[in-house]
Amino acid sequence: MNTDILSAITFEAASTTEHFEQIIALQNQNLYKSLSSHQQEQQGFVFAEHTLDLLQTMATQIPQVIALHQGKVIGYNLAMTAAMETELPSLEPMFREFHKAEYKGRVLTDYQFFVGGQVCVDKDFRGLGLLSKLYNASAGLVGSAYELCVTEIAVRNTKSLAIHQKMGFEVVSTHNDGLEDWNVVAWDIRNR
């Protein structure tokens, strides 16, 4: 692990139009439809497409954490509150599953939770543990207001699932949204 690179990376809440534009650019490079199936298998991928307006709206409700290297966004962890359930139609099946999926004997919606992810790291900065650092920065910024971070990961995105499980996420259910099979995962941020 290159400690020089790691020491030059900072984490903060996205706050400028330039931050949000760089998030969208990084997202576009890693969208499933921009990558071959081989690249998806080897590197992982992201599904949801966000607009500048949506990102700025999300940031008014909960921090959108970015990793910066030399002023450039090289990673991000987008977050949503339960109140944003209808803001992105492609995520509505995920939110419906949250009303059914259980974590430690309770339905997810019985917890104070935020939706973590979409999380993405620039391909030139992978392998440095930035996914974990992004999630931990998000958990640190939301503080004690939340108990869980929940998200979903495409079943075929085995790379992403393995990384999430390594940092403590647990699969709590699996569902199909009509197009894809998804693992719903939860991370108890009180135990981080």
Rank of each mutant, 00 (worst) to 15 (best):
M1F: 13
M1W: 13
T3M: 14
I5N: 00
I5R: 03
E12C: 12
A14N: 05
T16V: 09
H19I: 04
E21L: 15
E21W: 11
I24D: 00
Q29Y: 10
L31H: 08
K33W: 13
S34T: 14
H38S: 11
Q40L: 08
Q42M: 13
Q43D: 13
V46S: 05
F47R: 09
E49M: 09
T51R: 11
D53V: 11
L55C: 03
M58K: 11
M58N: 09
T60D: 10
P63F: 01
H69M: 04
Q70L: 06
V73L: 02
N77T: 10
L78W: 03
E87H: 14
E87A: 15
E87K: 11
S90W: 13
L91T: 05
M94N: 04
R96K: 15
E97Y: 09
E97A: 11
D110R: 13
Y111L: 08
Q112A: 15
F113C: 05
F113P: 00
F125G: 00
G129Q: 07
K133W: 03
S144V: 07
Y146W: 13
T151H: 12
I153T: 09
R156Y: 12
H164K: 09
Q165A: 10
H175C: 10
D177F: 06
D181K: 13
D181E: 15
I189H: 04
I189G: 02
